[in-house]
Design a binder for these strands. Structure first.
Length: 156
DNA sequence: GCCAACGTTGGC
DNA sequence: GCCAACGTTGGC
């Protein structure tokens, strides 16, 4: 799951009560479908900082709720307001996420790219990818954990 | 700030 | 249903 640190950072999540926060504001149907139809309670998540000086993965969180309607879509004062959403016909969904642990070291997008051979079909690395919620295969997950615990890449 | 790569909107 | 125009994302 991607987040712009200036909007909601890893540290912001760490500062929340129970290190838990609603993940709201997703306004893309494909990402919405992953949240609503694919995610399950206890699923683990890589927390990715995007649109910042050095984009990359900072740690692991987990899903701690089922999907439920995103009420920010109903609030005209919210930047996430969507006039086409309705109380009785929710268009956008959220899950609650809880911090699990920080990575032993930051893994930058650049380092992920350097290991592209071992991250086949990882949608984060594909051209023009703009999805804010991206599925991670078991193989990709394991390799990234492996990367975390080795000294590969440039940010030693 | 630039721009590629999308996604969405709306006229037809 | 097509597609041009427009808006957004996100790396650089």
């Amino acid at each position: 799951m991607k987040s712009e640190p200036e909007v909601f950072s890893w540290q912001d999540l760490a500062n929340k009560p129970h290190k838990t926060s609603v993940w709201d504001g997703v306004r893309n149907y494909q990402a919405r479908n992953f949240i609503r139809d694919v995610m399950s309670v206890n699923d683990e998540i890589f927390f990715y900082h995007s649109s910042c000086k050095t984009p990359g993965i900072v740690g692991i969180a987990k899903v701690v709720s089922k999907a439920y309607p995103d009420i920010t879509a109903l609030n005209p004062q919210s930047p996430y307001f969507d006039p086409k959403s309705a109380v009785d016909n929710a268009r956008w969904f959220v899950v609650d996420v809880q911090l699990v642990r920080s990575f032993a070291r930051f893994i930058s997008l650049d380092e992920l790219r350097q290991n592209q051979e071992n991250l086949k079909n990882f949608p984060l690395l594909t051209r023009g990818n703009r999805l804010s919620v991206i599925p991670v295969t078991y193989e990709n997950w394991q390799f990234i954990l492996h990367l975390e615990n080795t000294k590969l890449g440039t940010n030693l």
